[in-house]
Design a protein around this nucleic acid. Structure first.
Length: 340
DNA sequence: AATTTAAGCAACCGCGTACCA
DNA sequence: CTGGTACGCGGTTGCTTAAAT
C-alpha cells in the first residue's frame, strides 16, 4: 500500500542530468518561470519526474548559486547556525546567500562535522586527561547540546521573528520576506515568499543571465557523449568555478554571451541555444552582474549578508543570541524533563 | 602500476505540510 | 471539514574521483 510513487518509474529517467536536459529545463523556466513543476516534464518533453526537475533547478540551475569553496566566514556561520537551528538546512541556507541547503548539508556532513568532532575530541582530552572516546564519534557537542525538536523550533521562531523585525526596521519593504509567518506555523521551515510579479520577472532575468553564462562552458566541456557522468561532473566543476569567479569579481559588466558562444565548437544545440540567447537579449538581462544577483537574493533569502562586511555584526548577534538562548535552553530542558 | 578504500557530492526517496476543490 | 495532491525538506544513497596501499 503506502503512497503511490511520485512519478511512475517507467519511462522516467533518473541519475545525473545532461547538459541537454539542463538547457531544456532552463529555457522552459526562463519562459514560464519556476513553479508548477508537475507540468514541467510534460511541457518540456523531459523524461524526468517533476521532483527531479525542481531539485535540479533549485540546487543547481537556479541563478545566483555559488558552489564549493566555502569561505571561513561561511563555515563559521554554518557552524553557528547549525548549533542554533539543528539540521534545518533550509533555514540555515536562508542566512547564506548563494548557498543551497543541499550544498550546506553536504558540506556539513563531509567537512564540518568531522572538524567539530576532532575539535571536540581535542578539548575532551584536555579536560579529562586521557579518555578513550567511545562516545565522541557519534555526535558532536553541538548536536547533543540541543535535544528536543521543539526547543529548536522555538529558537528558530525567535530567531526568525528577530530577523523579520530587523528587516522591517532597517531594510524598507521592497522585498517581502516572511520567514516568521512560515516558521511560526507548524512547519517551521523558512521560505521567503515571492509575491510581486516584477520580482519574479527579475528572477527569470537573472536566471537567464546566469545560465547563459553556463552554457558556453557546457559547450566546451561536452565534446563526447554527455551521458558519461564523469564528464558532467567535470562540467559542473568548471561551472562552479566560473560562477564563483564571476560573482566574486565585481561586475566587469558586459559578459558577452555571444562572443563566448561563438567560440563553441559543438554545434549540436545551436538552435536551442540561439533561442535561448535571443530570449535573453530581448529582455534586458545582460546588465551588470551584481544587481541582478542581489535582487535575486532578496527574493529568496532574508538578505542579511549580501556583501561580506556585516558578517562580524551578524556573528556577534548570533553569539549573543546563542548565549541568551542558552539560558532559555536550560529552562526549557528542565521543563521538558518534567514533561517527558 | 594496479587495486582497494575513503571522500565528495548530485540526486533520490519518503515524509510532512500547505493548498485547493 | 475532508480528501487528494503538489511542493519542499532532510536523510540517505550511489556514483565518481582522490588517496592510500
Amino acid at each position: 500500500m503506502g503512497r503511490p510513487p511520485c512519478c511512475d518509474k517507467i519511462g522516467v529517467k533518473k541519475g545525473p542530468w545532461t547538459p541537454e536536459e539542463d538547457i531544456t529545463l532552463v529555457s522552459y523556466i526562463q519562459q514560464n518561470g519556476p513553479g508548477n513543476w508537475r507540468s514541467v516534464p510534460t511541457n518540456t518533453g523531459l523524461l524526468r519526474c517533476s521532483k527531479s526537475c525542481r531539485l535540479r533547478w533549485t540546487n543547481y540551475l537556479r541563478p545566483g548559486i555559488k558552489r564549493g569553496n566555502f569561505t571561513e566566514q561561511e563555515e563559521k556561520m554554518i557552524i553557528h547556525l547549525q548549533a542554533l537551528l539543528g539540521n534545518r538546512w533550509a533555514a540555515i541556507a536562508s542566512y547564506l546567500p548563494q548557498r543551497t541547503d543541499n550544498d550546506i548539508k553536504n558540506y556539513w556532513n563531509t567537512h564540518l562535522k568531522k572538524k567539530l568532532d576532532k575539535l571536540h575530541e581535542d578539548t575532551d582530552q584536555e579536560t579529562h586527561h586521557h579518555h578513550h572516546g567511545c562516545h565522541s564519534s557519534s555526535s558532536s557537542s553541538y548536536e547533543t547540546m540541543y535535544k528536543g525538536q521543539w526547543e529548536r523550533r522555538l529558537q528558530t521562531d525567535i530567531h526568525m521573528a528577530k530577523q523579520a523585525l530587523c528587516d522591517a526596521l532597517s531594510i524598507d519593504n521592497k522585498t517581502i520576506n516572511l520567514p516568521v509567518s512560515s516558521s511560526a506555523t507548524t512547519s517551521g521551515k523558512s521560505e521567503s515568499v515571492i509575491l510581486s510579479s516584477n520580482q519574479s520577472t527579475a528572477t527569470y532575468a537573472s536566471s537567464a543571465e546566469n545560465i547563459a553564462r553556463l552554457l558556453p562552458d557546457w559547450m566546451k566541456c561536452s565534446k563526447k557523449s554527455p551521458q558519461t557522468s564523469s564528464e558532467s561532473i567535470e562540467t559542473k566543476q568548471t561551472q562552479s568555478s566560473l560562477i564563483t569567479q564571476q560573482l566574486t569579481s565585481p561586475p566587469s559588466e558586459g559578459y558577452d554571451n555571444s562572443v563566448q558562444f561563438g567560440n563553441s565548437n559543438n554545434m549540436i544545440h545551436n538552435n536551442q541555444i540561439n533561442n535561448y540567447y535571443s530570449n535573453y537579449s530581448n529582455s534586458d538581462i545582460s546588465q551588470s552582474v551584481s544587481p541582478e544577483t542581489s535582487r535575486f537574493q532578496d527574493e529568496s533569502k532574508p538578505s542579511m549578508e549580501n556583501q561580506m562586511p556585516p558578517l562580524s555584526l551578524l556573528e556577534k548577534w548570533l553569539f549573543d543570541e546563542a548565549s541568551t538562548q542558552g539560558d532559555l535552553m536550560n529552562i526549557s530542558l528542565e521543563e521538558s524533563d518534567d514533561f517527558f
